[in-house]
């Protein structure tokens, strides 16, 4: 009597050959993509919460300038967090358009010395401890700090990382917006802020200077 060979002893080479994608398959995949794209655009056109597909620039949406004078004049009054009629209309989906950095990303930039750090906290808090090399740019007194800090940021394409208390603190966002309005193109935010840096045990500097 013949016994069937246990399946576990069948050599792997006996497995079925794998299929290789052919030209027809690429055509079908392309068809799936095109169908999805057309359906998506059509759905978006009729959906109540659909979005504008054309990229909107500040000019396109009647961008209203900030009431404060431009930064080069350094006549900026202290910023209020309450929105008013002259607050610039945010672009769709642009609640916070600045790249947000993790602790690892910030430490990498710190080690490589590829960016300038801006500490948006109060001068007293800055004096108690800050990232070495960071400049103090207190968000509630931009008019006072801008004449001191901005002349040190000559290159508008330089990478700038703003931080404050982490969590819900929006001081760093305020100064990031101010810098972006002034033409600085590479402004980023360290979301964890000072508490995360301090907790990680990374180098700190004390005193009123960087």
């Amino acid at each position: 009597m013949r016994h069937r060979r246990p399946s576990s002893l069948v050599p792997a080479s006996a497995a079925k050959p794998l299929s290789v994608p052919d030209k027809g398959l690429f055509r079908q995949a392309w068809g799936l993509f095109v169908f999805s794209a057309f359906f998506a655009v059509g759905f978006n056109a009729f959906y109540v919460d659909g979005i504008e597909l054309k990229h909107k620039t500040k000019k396109d949406i009647n961008w209203r300038p900030s009431p404060q004078p431009a930064l080069p004049g350094f006549g900026m009054a202290s910023q209020s967090s309450a929105p008013d009629a002259a607050t610039p209309t945010p672009l769709p989906g642009e609640s916070n358009p600045f790249p947000r950095l993790s602790l690892m990303g910030v430490k990498e930039r710190f080690d490589k010395k590829t960016c300038v750090f801006l500490d948006a906290r109060k001068p007293e808090e800055y004096g108690e401890g800050h990232i070495p090399g960071a400049l103090n740019f207190y968000a509630n007194e931009i008019g006072k700090f801008a004449p001191v800090v901005l002349p040190q940021l000559q290159d508008k394409a330089e990478e700038i990382v703003a931080y404050c208390h982490g969590g819900d603190c929006d001081f760093s966002l305020q100064i990031a917006k101010t810098l972006a309005d002034a033409g600085y193109t590479r402004v980023e935010i360290f979301t964890g802020g000072w508490p995360e840096w301090e907790k990680a045990g990374y180098p700190i500097a004390k005193g009123s200077g960087p």
């Binding site: 799936l32 999805s36 359906f39 655009v41 978006n44 979005i51 054309k54 990229h55 916070n96 790249p99």
Partner: peptide, 25 residues
């Protein structure tokens, strides 16, 4: 909003289209 924040290197003109097409795809 998420694309603008996290995948900002996608060209700005393509971001709205990406946000609309990718979920349906």
């Amino acid at each position: 909003g998420l694309i603008k924040e996290c995948y900002f290197y996608i060209p700005a003109s393509l971001q709205p289209l990406t946000a609309v097409v990718i979920p349906w795809l």
